[in-house]
Amino acid sequence: MSLIALDYGEFFATLSTRGGALWSFEMRHQGQTFPLLQIRGDAASDGAGLSGCFPLVPFGNRVRDNGFVLAGKHHVFLANTDDDPFYLHGDGWLGEWHIVEHSQSRCLLSFEKQQDAQGAASPYVYRATEDITLDDEGLILTLTVTNQGDETLPFGLGWHPFFPLTSRTKLTARASHYWTEESDRLPGSRETLPCALDFNEARPLPDHWVNNGFEGWDGLAEIVWSDDNLILEIRASDLFTRYQIFVSDISFDPTYKKDFFCFEPMSHAVDAHNQAGLAGLRLLEPGASLCGSMRLHPRIG
Rank of each mutant, 00 (worst) to 15 (best):
N66M: 01
G67L: 03
G67H: 02
V69D: 05
G72T: 03
G72P: 01
K73M: 00
H74E: 06
F77H: 04
L78K: 07
N80Q: 01
N80F: 02
T81H: 00
D82W: 01
D83P: 02
D83T: 05
D84Q: 07
D84S: 06
F86P: 00
G92Q: 04
W93P: 08
W93H: 10
L94Q: 02
G95Q: 09
G95A: 15
E96F: 14
W97E: 11
W97T: 09
I99N: 10
I99Y: 08
I99G: 12
V100S: 11
S103K: 09
S103L: 07
S103R: 11
Q104P: 03
Q104F: 08
Q104M: 07
Q104C: 09
R106D: 11
L108I: 13
L108R: 13
L108S: 10
L109P: 06
S110M: 14
F111S: 05
F111Q: 11
E112K: 13
K113T: 01
K113E: 08
Q115N: 15
Q115D: 15
D116P: 02
A117D: 14
A117S: 11
G119I: 03
A120P: 03
A121K: 05
A121V: 02
P123L: 00
Y124M: 07
Y124H: 09
R127N: 08
A128E: 13
T129H: 14
E130L: 15
L134C: 07
D135G: 02
E137V: 04
G138M: 07
L139C: 12
L141M: 11
T142H: 14
T144D: 06
T144V: 04
V145W: 10
G149P: 08
G149E: 03
D150P: 10
D150V: 11
E151K: 07
L153Y: 00
P154L: 00
L157R: 03
L157F: 04
G158L: 01
G158E: 02
W159F: 14
H160G: 11
H160D: 10
F162C: 11
F163A: 04
F163K: 03
P164H: 06
L165G: 04
